[in-house]
Computed example of a mutant assay.
Amino acid sequence: MKLLTVAEAADVARCHPETVAAALRAGKLHGHQTKKRAPWVTQKACVIAWRLGQKCSHD
Rank of each mutant, 00 (worst) to 15 (best):
H58S: 10
L29W: 04
M1I: 04
S57E: 15
V41L: 13
C15D: 05
R37A: 13
A22F: 06
A9K: 01
R25E: 12
L29I: 02
A7N: 01
R51N: 07
T19I: 07
Q43S: 14
K2W: 03
Q33L: 11
R51F: 02
H58C: 12
L3W: 05
L3T: 09
S57P: 13
A9N: 00
E18K: 12
L4T: 03
H32T: 09
G27D: 10
R37E: 10
T5F: 03
D59A: 15
H32F: 15
V6H: 02
C56R: 08
A22C: 10
K2N: 12
D11F: 04
R25I: 03
A22L: 11
C15F: 01
K35T: 13
D59H: 14
A26W: 06
V6W: 03
P39M: 12
H16G: 03
K55R: 15
C15M: 02
P17I: 00
R37G: 12
G31R: 05
H16K: 05
D11G: 01
W40C: 01
G31C: 04
L52M: 15
E8F: 06
K44N: 08
R14F: 03
W40E: 00
H32E: 15
A49K: 12
T34F: 11
A26N: 10
C15P: 05
R37F: 14
C56S: 15
M1L: 09
V47F: 07
D11K: 06
W50A: 02
G27C: 09
K35V: 10
L24E: 09
G27F: 08
A26Y: 03
L29K: 00
R51H: 06
G31D: 03
K44Q: 08
V6E: 00
G27I: 07
T34R: 13
W50N: 05
S57Q: 14
A21D: 06
H58R: 12
R37Y: 15
G31A: 09
T19M: 06
E18G: 03
W40A: 00
W50M: 09
H58L: 15
L24F: 07
L3G: 04
K55I: 05
A21N: 03
R51Q: 08
K2S: 12
E18F: 05
W40S: 00
A13Y: 01
V41K: 02
E8C: 08
I48V: 14
A7H: 04
T42M: 08
D59K: 13
R14S: 00
P39A: 15
P39Q: 14
T42P: 07
V41S: 10
S57I: 13
R37I: 09
P17L: 01
L29N: 02
R37K: 14
V12G: 00
I48R: 02
G27E: 11
K55G: 01
